[in-house]
Design a protein around this nucleic acid. Structure first.
Length: 658
RNA sequence: GCCGCUGUGGCUUAGCUUGGUAAAGCGGCUGAUUCGUAAUCAGCAGAUCAUGGGUUCGAAUCCCAUCAGCGGCUCCA
């Protein structure tokens, strides 16, 4: 078998400098590099048949609905957004590349086949159709050309002469001046996701495994919503997410138009909430033996190990050019921690070895349409812990511990029982560990969604997530743990066992709370749901930016209020000293969801007792400052405390929003 | 990424259909008021009507492009 029987070229063009005479069309230098993805296959035959139109389908005559060609060079083509600047140049470049290949394999037949999978930076459909048509026209002078229609779902069969595609796949980048070869960069994981076939089941605490469609959801409405969301992934929504309005009105966070979308600004109150949640998660994993580390936010795109991992992760990343080198922004702490692990000397006595980082930030360039408020961001804060275990049995034991830890974390955060569980694993893992999985379901004591794969497409063999279901029936993953069986090898991480042998650890990935911003989103959505049902929306007291608001009736009571504030150590107290009526200030405190509101006038100054309104119970009690302080301190016992993040006097506060 | 909707002082909106250079409430400032549990009174300042083009004697209003937010769709050529 000879190589050139199957010529497979994945080419990425960069536009060459235009002759002087053409430059004027583009208003001067506009040489940002034009690309088009091209996959050329010399085939015995290629045949296709259109199945269904997509929304971007071109209008075609019936003669184009199916077609075939024997002994042809098939060109799979993706026109990219960069090509829009100069479609004609793109056509010329592509034509010459196809000519070169066709001459090489000595064929005079060319099949042009639009193929979107080749790129994630596609051009507008109209441009693509235009380029394809012109390409057909250009090539038809010298070749017999056919073109498959654009924008249709098509079935196709191709017989490639010789070698398997995967082994010959390569990318050629034609630079502005010189040509250089590059490895294919289409993420392996993105491809895997396409191939992965999922089997959906419900597993009950009794150990019953039922196909998802036969399960009786009547007593599990949230699980039903979750399953619908996972399987169908579509849902009609009639309003904007409630938390978006709340995050602004409560002066927590807002969009930042000066940045990329999905990069938020956090006001003092939101920043305080974030820090408290971050403190809490770090404290909690520290109690479970994790040590905190810090790693860089950007990594070399061409680092051999990282590159392979990058390919394995189904996320799109930000990239940064700096001084001729290319970097990508991390989407988790895996990179930094695994590289650190690799250089460490680790004994079996050190296992399980846990490292955690509060990644501020992790970056994922999610699609525009996916970004909403605090639910899905492009820059987010995520606790990321990795645990090195001696082997799979050890990993499974740790997995169970961390599963329980995650449940406790969500309960402490204020999301007790507000989530649905998904456990996902390969068939092999299931047959070997059936009991273990049933046990996990018993621990949460409610039915969970099971996703089963026939073979392993990802780096993990099992993972679970706790998913929050919001008022619009959207599911978002919070806590998650995965057992990774691939990266110890990839990163060359090893430990020394009792016998002095070097072994590969099994690695757990864990985010105990999920993204911190997403926790805030879930808390706001939950509060909104409660208020819709006629309840009082609240935040957990330990997370409330102000825990106690003092309202002096007149100016002469301010001094006394300051004394009260002073008494309440380790409680976030502020004083509304603005020149407004008591009624108005009460109302303002209510709109801020402040858990304890105290009015201070002559009566309080004389008696020494305070009139305290408890928001959660909508009732008033008489207490001394010490009693109130003790009440709040015991309520937040065990949770982190930080001092107030704004001036104590409201008259001194600037307005951030509204 | 694609489609649709939206974009008016710091905030929320009116005006846009039927072009004639902006209106209100909140917030801010000033003054009066020192007040007892869900909005005290008066005055003042504050807007190149998202950005860039176009049509027109004249554009917040009509057209095009861009950006952003929201909703939907989508990894599909």
């Amino acid at each position: 078998m000879y190589l050139n029987h199957c010529l497979l070229t994945l080419a990425r063009y960069s536009q060459r400098p235009l002759p002087e005479s053409q430059i004027y069309k583009h208003g001067g230098q506009s040489n940002t590099g034009h690309n088009m993805q091209l996959l050329l296959i010399h085939s015995d035959y290629i045949e296709y048949e259109t199945k269904k139109r997509t929304p971007v389908a071109e209008e075609i005559e019936s003669s184009m609905k199916s077609g075939c060609m024997e002994e042809a060079l098939t060109a799979f083509i993706a026109v990219e957004s960069y090509d829009e600047e100069d479609p004609d140049g793109t056509v010329q470049n592509a034509a010459s590349e196809i000519r070169k290949a066709a001459d090489q394999v000595k064929t005079n037949r060319v099949m042009l086949y639009p193929y979107a999978h080749l790129s994630s930076e596609l051009s507008k459909p109209a441009v693509a159709v235009d380029v394809l048509k012109k390409l057909e026209e250009t090539l038809s002078f010298d070749y017999e050309v056919k073109r498959a229609p654009f924008g249709w779902y098509k079935a196709f069969k191709i017989s490639c002469k010789g070698h398997p595609l995967s082994e010959l796949s390569r990318t050629i980048r034609i630079g502005k001046k010189e040509e250089k070869e590059e490895k294919e960069v289409v993420s392996e994981a993105l491809k895997s996701e396409e191939r992965a076939i999922s089997y959906w089941h419900i597993l009950t605490p009794d150990g019953e495994l039922l196909p998802a469609e036969t399960f009786d959801f009547s007593e599990h409405t949230d699980l039903k919503k979750f399953v619908d969301y996972e399987i169908s992934k579509s849902r009609a929504v009639d309003r904007i997410p409630p938390h978006v309005e709340l995050m602004r009105r409560l002066e927590l966070a807002d969009y930042e138009p000066g940045s990329d979308s999905g990069n938020m600004r956090f006001y003092p109150k939101g920043t305080l909430m974030k820090r408290l949640l971050e403190d809490y998660v770090i404290d909690t994993v520290a109690k479970h033996g994790a040590v905190e580390v810090e790693t860089p936010v950007m990594y070399d795109m061409n680092h051999p190990t990282l590159k392979k991992y990058l390919d394995r992760f189904p996320a799109r990343q930000y990239s940064i050019e700096s001084d001729k080198r290319s970097f990508f922004l991390r989407f988790a702490a895996c990179f930094g921690q695994f590289l650190m692990n690799r250089d460490m000397t680790i004994s079996h006595r050190n296992l399980p070895l846990k490292m955690v980082e509060m990644t501020r930030y992790s970056f994922r360039r999610e699609q525009h349409g996916e970004l909403v408020g605090l639910r899905r961001l492009r820059a987010f804060t995520m606790p990321d812990m990795h645990t090195l275990c001696s082997d799979m049995d050890h990993a499974i034991a740790e997995f169970k511990d961390q599963y329980a830890m995650c449940m406790a974390v969500l309960a402490d955060i204020g999301l007790d029982n507000d989530y649905e569980v998904a456990i996902r694993f390969t068939r092999d893992f299931y047959t070997e560990n059936q009991e273990f999985i049933t046990e996990l379901v018993k621990i949460v004591d409610k039915p969970v969604l099971i996703e089963l794969w026939d073979s392993r497409f990802f780096y993990f063999v099992i993972k679970f997530e706790f998913n929050y279901i919001d008022a619009m029936n959207k599911a978002s993953a919070l806590s998650t743990v995965q057992i990774d069986v691939e990266n110890a090898e990839r990163y060359d991480i090893e430990y020394t066992d009792k016998n002095g042998d070097k072994l590969r650890p099994t690695i757990l990935h864990c985010s105990p709370s999920g993204a911190i911003e997403r926790c805030i989103y879930a808390l706001l959505e939950k509060a909104h749901l409660i208020s819709e049902e006629g309840g009082v929306p609240t935040l957990p007291t330990w997370l409330s930016p102000t825990q106690v608001r003092l309202i002096p009736v007149a100016d002469r009571h301010i001094e006394y209020a300051e004394g009260v504030a002073h008494t309440m150590r380790d409680v976030r107290v502020d004083i509304d000293d603005r020149d407004e009526t008591v009624g108005k200030r009460i109302r303002a405190a209510g709109r801020e969801w402040i858990p304890y509101v105290v009015v201070i006038g002559n009566k309080e100054v004389e008696s020494g007792a305070l009139s305290v309104t408890i928001r959660a119970e909508s009732e008033k009690v008489e207490e001394t400052a010490h009693q109130l302080r003790d009440r709040v301190v015991s309520e937040i016992a065990g949770m982190p405390y930080r001092q107030i993040n704004l001036p104590v006097m409201l008259s001194r506060r600037a307005v951030f929003f509204g």
